[in-house]
Write a protein that binds this DNA or RNA. Structure first.
Lengths: 248, 248
DNA sequence: CGCGCCTTTGAAGGAGCTCAATTTAGGTGG
DNA sequence: CCACCTAAATTGAGCTCCTTCAAAGGCGCG
């Protein structure tokens, strides 16, 4: 359908060694809660890895569904397009997170997944994963949790989009990013945004100018320091108060 | 936590006979694609049924998660609440649809499920379902499809909320309802709304007055006929054109 | 039959959008 | 290494769509 934008890395001893059992992300990813021998079983199902360069697609809406992906390194966005060109970013994914579950329902991907920086993913052929989850109860349960977590996350985005004002949405977005960076051992208070104002705006249901103005306002209020894509969170409780004025 | 608002129906011969194998909704619901003997296995997992009266909760955010539910008859909404009282309706569920998958991720429900009319659900204890999906490959695959479909549906709602104007949202909502009624053998063009303008508004990220005005506008344009909760769709292609002006 | 809830409709206000100009950063090639 | 070039970000001004506030009408339930 499209010429391959990524290349597979053959399974050599060194890449096998770097699969789930040796992966620093395993507690964030699919192997969570598995025993050592179970993780080794999972290793065998994780077929290969794939590098995706910045700007390239991991998959596109309409592509046949064969595998889900675990982000090994890098950063992705997923989006859906309307016929008239409007698009909606449905999520941003970072290391340890799972991509591609939208494709299971009709065996075709329904959204696009694009790398926002040079990235690497673990390819998990879905039929093999289903086989394995029939054998390993804890893996089955954890996989169900991962899918359910995606549903719960989506409900949170609906709340953002349906019930919050612009500055609340941006505050929630920043706090969410911060939380996820903490879980990965990065600084909670200082990070580099991988996405543009336009992409943030699409995700939050706002125009890029509105996002930019909200950033500037937070800067003026002393809640954060903004320099283009570089963000420093100065007043975490202040951001939370913005979200929920009377509590805190 | 809360006093039980619903009562279980004991498993008698007659209720067993009315389980999946005899259910008219089976092709819309969990048994989809299963063979007769497999459906009978599923029957045994579906523990009981529960009646939920209009206005009562099937479950609440914070309740422990034990089962998912298949809507046997009636109509539900799910919503999430913010601390300050704002709420977001995350979906409306009708016969054959599955409720409760939000609870899998943290073993606690994260949203509320409320009956919008007197309803009945099949209670499917989740541990038993997981057991069964380890044994029946086709059931496992279909259950994964059901969860994935929920994710895809959520992406559609994000598109609504993030990228569409008020009238486009309402048109998409009506067309979606119409499609789902068709699948259930009801009229595609004439139906009774089970939810209030306020609930539609919450779902679509609009105020109830805006929903009401959009309904009146569609009526003036001859696209639909509205009388309170009674809706007749007069011009289905016209509604589609509203959604996607240049196509159609 | 009456009360409360839901819906409809109007008028005014505001949050976020559109359009436009300027600044800044990052990548490229001389 | 610097000048150039393009994409991204910032900021302003006016406008629009949706909200808010308000009042009246209709339906259904007890």
């Amino acid at each position: 359908m499209h010429k391959p934008e990524t290349r597979s890395i053959p399974l050599t001893l060194s890449t096998i060694k770097a699969a789930c059992s040796q992966c620093s992300l395993r507690e964030l990813c699919l192997p969570f809660g598995l025993s050592e021998p179970e993780i080794e079983q999972l290793d065998s199902a994780v077929g290969s890895r794939r590098r995706v360069k910045r700007g390239q697609h991991l998959y596109r809406a309409g592509d046949g569904f064969e595998a889900i992906y675990a982000v090994k390194s890098g950063f992705f966005k997923t989006d859906v397009l309307l016929e008239d060109g409007r698009n909606q970013v449905t999520g941003f994914q970072m290391a340890g997170e799972i991509l591609g579950m939208d494709g299971i329902s009709v065996e075709t991907h329904t959204c696009n997944s694009v790398a926002l920086e040079d990235s690497e993913v673990c390819v998990i052929p879905f039929s093999q994963l289903e086989q394995l989850t029939r054998e390993i109860k804890s893996l089955q349960h954890h996989f169900h949790k991962v899918m359910s977590r995606e549903i719960v996350r989506d409900h949170g985005v609906m709340m953002l989009l349906g019930a919050m004002r612009a500055e609340e949405r941006l505050a929630a977005f920043l706090l969410n990013l911060s939380q996820r960076f903490i879980a990965r051992g990065y600084s909670a208070s200082e990070f580099h945004l991988r996405m543009t104002r336009d992409e943030i705006g699409s995700y939050l249901g706002l125009k890029l100018e509105t996002v930019s103005r909200a950033f500037s306002r937070f800067d003026e209020l002393g809640l954060i320091r903004v320099q283009q894509k570089h963000i420093v969170i100065l007043d975490n409780p202040g951001l939370k108060k913005l979200l929920n004025p009377q509590a805190c």
